[in-house]
């Protein structure tokens, strides 16, 4: 009966994952391997294709500040910053999706509300980075719900510090993807990350640890059944959580640097809330 409960939990979290996350790994891998027929993504590989591709990205027009009015500067400046703003909008939307997923974890909404906030604040960027992995390969990443493929080289060619933002995520993702998790494994792993009892400022750690332990058991069983030949997969996956924390710390420091150096950059209020006093 205990194993049956753990399987039911895995099914429940997989269903919630499918409900709240529009682009699954299965769909992303199909797009990346060209198995979607005529439905191929638009490729952004330079500034020209970025401008052409903007119609696919839900870009909000942002005003160009006075001191960038000179025509050619204005054009490049606006494109780069507009792209960054659209990334922020998508990230904020993704935070909302992750929040809904978190609420579907059995017992999560019964936790102290302040602890729910803390778990999301510290967990959500880690979750978003894990969710980015299936969209990436060594050459680039899908964006805009799989409608666009943006090359890694193009991202590396952006001006500093924009060019430094994605490279660590590519390095992590290429390694993470070798574990070959599927969407049902991912759902459990994301729940484990969210239910981390060691986040700073938690008021009542015990119920969080109890919830996480159950999900961990469910994940361990899931991996044994779903990947019988992959030795130590559970242990390898748990080790990834340490790498993730470093990536998030570096990411937040980069955003803080951007805030200082890019005088015209405005950070989305939700992302600002999450990153304020994070690390």
């Amino acid at each position: 009966p205990e194993a049956a409960d753990l399987r039911a939990l895995a099914r429940h979290l997989y269903e919630a994952y499918l409900k709240y996350f529009p682009l699954t790994k299965a769909k992303a891998r199909a797009i990346l391997s060209g198995k979607t027929g005529d439905n191929v993504p638009f490729v952004i590989h330079d500034m020209k294709s970025l401008m052409e591709g903007e119609q696919f990205i839900n870009c909000k027009q942002i005003p160009v500040p006075e001191h960038h009015q000179q025509q050619h500067i204005k054009l490049l400046y606006a494109v780069e910053l507009r792209f960054f703003q659209s990334c922020q909008s998508r990230s904020a939307e993704a935070v909302r999706e992750v929040t809904e997923f978190a609420k579907s974890i059995p017992g999560f909404v019964d936790l102290d509300l302040n602890d729910q906030v803390t778990l999301l604040k510290y967990g959500v960027i880690e979750v978003l980075i894990i969710m980015m992995s299936p969209l990436m390969n060594k050459d680039g990443t899908l964006i805009s719900y799989g409608q666009i493929f943006m090359t890694r080289e193009f991202l590396k060619s952006l001006r500093k510090p924009f060019c430094q933002m994605m490279e660590p995520k590519f390095e992590f993702s290429v390694k993470f993807n070798t574990l070959e998790l599927d969407d049902s494994d991912m759902a459990l792993f994301l729940a484990v990350i969210i239910l981390s009892g060691d986040r700073p400022g938690l008021l009542n750690v015990k119920p969080i640890e109890q919830l996480q332990e159950t999900v961990l058991h469910s994940l361990e069983l899931q991996l044994k059944l779903n990947h019988p030949d992959s030795l130590q997969l559970f242990a390898k996956l748990l080790q990834k959580m340490t790498d993730l924390r470093q990536i998030v710390t570096d990411h937040v420091h980069l955003i803080q640097l951007l805030k200082k150096t890019e005088i015209d950059m405005c950070l989305h209020p939700l992302l600002q809330e999450i990153m304020k006093d994070l690390y």
Binding site: R96, T99, K103, N114, Q116, V117, L120, P269, L270, K276
Partner: peptide, 20 residues
């Protein structure tokens, strides 16, 4: 609570979307 107003709203409202 004020520091994390939007997160609180997201957690408490299941249907009404916060203006993202």
């Amino acid at each position: 609570k004020e520091k994390h107003k939007i997160l609180h709203q997201l957690l408490q409202n299941s249907t009404s979307p916060v203006d993202l």
